[in-house]
């Protein structure tokens, strides 16, 4: 009974990691950049959702959509201002810029509204029902279904639309894609937009599920999502989903065994082990270096 409950706890946590990890992995797949500002886009999304609900009295779904749209725009602005001109710079320069953007967003938000935490209002009823001896709240079911729907939508966009096709082409070979008449800049912006929208959605879901949001809330989930992306194989979309869920369940199992103080350590041990034994991740293929 306890284990059914723990599994549900783990999957709920994991689906939030997965939504953030998707953005990491998509951006890495297309421009080989670890976008460390991604966790902060997640935070901004959470605050946009919060203000939509409290100030404009919107429900969960309108708030979710507004937050996703605003984050998509925000992601594109970050890409255009900070990363675009570094397209041909060394990867380390882009990485350091990403860290700078991350700090700028975190402390920019603190400057605007202060560092104090905020409590998300209850948008769903708190009712829960018993299932195989576990308590499942209506919240967690809705949250899980929203995550799953968003992931299916993403698969559809990547595999069935023209933008998705362009994204895959640019990710495979930027130069060749350019020669084929694909607008690489717009495709990269689209990738940032989609990835950031998912982070925004994760932010709202996080707020509803965990209640407390603050300007530095994106740091730890951002790093955990990065671990999840590497675990699944960075640059591979299904890998990020599986990596996120596995990480969420592993962390919960570690706590459930009575080692709750080791939970964060477990995530990073996974990162180290993956980097040593299987750097390309669960779904990664051993790719040959291009000559």
């Amino acid at each position: 009974m306890e284990w059914v409950q723990q599994l549900i706890n783990g999957i709920s946590l994991g689906s939030i990691y997965a939504l953030i990890a998707l953005g990491y992995t998509m951006v890495y797949g297309i421009i080989k950049l670890i976008n460390f500002a991604h966790g902060d886009v997640f935070m901004v999304g959470s605050f946009i959702g919060f203000y939509s609900i409290t100030v404009f009295n919107l429900g969960f779904f309108p708030a979710l959509i507004i937050s996703m749209a605003a984050c998509a725009l925000f992601g594109v602005i970050i890409e255009r201002i900070a990363y675009k001109r570094l397209r041909n710079a060394t990867r380390i320069a882009a990485l350091i810029t990403a860290i700078g953007v991350s700090l700028l967003i975190e402390y920019g938000v603190i400057y605007i509204r202060g560092a104090q935490p905020e409590a998300y209002p209850d948008v769903f009823s708190n009712r829960s029902f018993a299932f195989l001896g576990a308590q499942i709240s209506i919240q967690s079911i809705l949250i899980l279904s929203v995550s799953v729907v968003l992931m299916i939508l993403l698969q559809f966009i990547v595999h069935k639309t023209k933008t998705g096709k362009a994204m895959r082409a640019v990710s495979h070979d930027t130069e060749a894609a350019k020669l084929m008449g694909i607008n690489v800049d717009n495709t990269i912006s689209a990738t940032f937009a989609i990835g950031s929208a998912l982070a925004g959605a994760a932010g709202v879901i996080f707020g509803v599920y965990y209640t407390k949001i603050d300007p530095l809330m994106g740091v730890i989930p951002g790093v955990k999502a990065f671990v999840a992306a590497v675990l699944g194989g960075i640059g591979i979309i299904p890998g990020a989903m599986v990596g996120g869920l596995v990480l969420g369940v592993v962390e919960t199992v570690v706590s459930a065994l009575g080692f709750s103080l080791w939970r964060d350590a477990a995530a990073f041990v996974i990162l180290i082990l993956i980097l040593i034994f299987r750097p390309s991740g669960i779904f990664g293929k051993n790719t040959r270096e291009k000559v």
Partner: peptide
């Protein structure tokens, strides 16, 4: 932020 696994043990 996630205390559910410990609380499940307590319960």
């Amino acid at each position: 932020t996630d205390f559910r696994s410990n609380l499940t043990r307590i319960k």
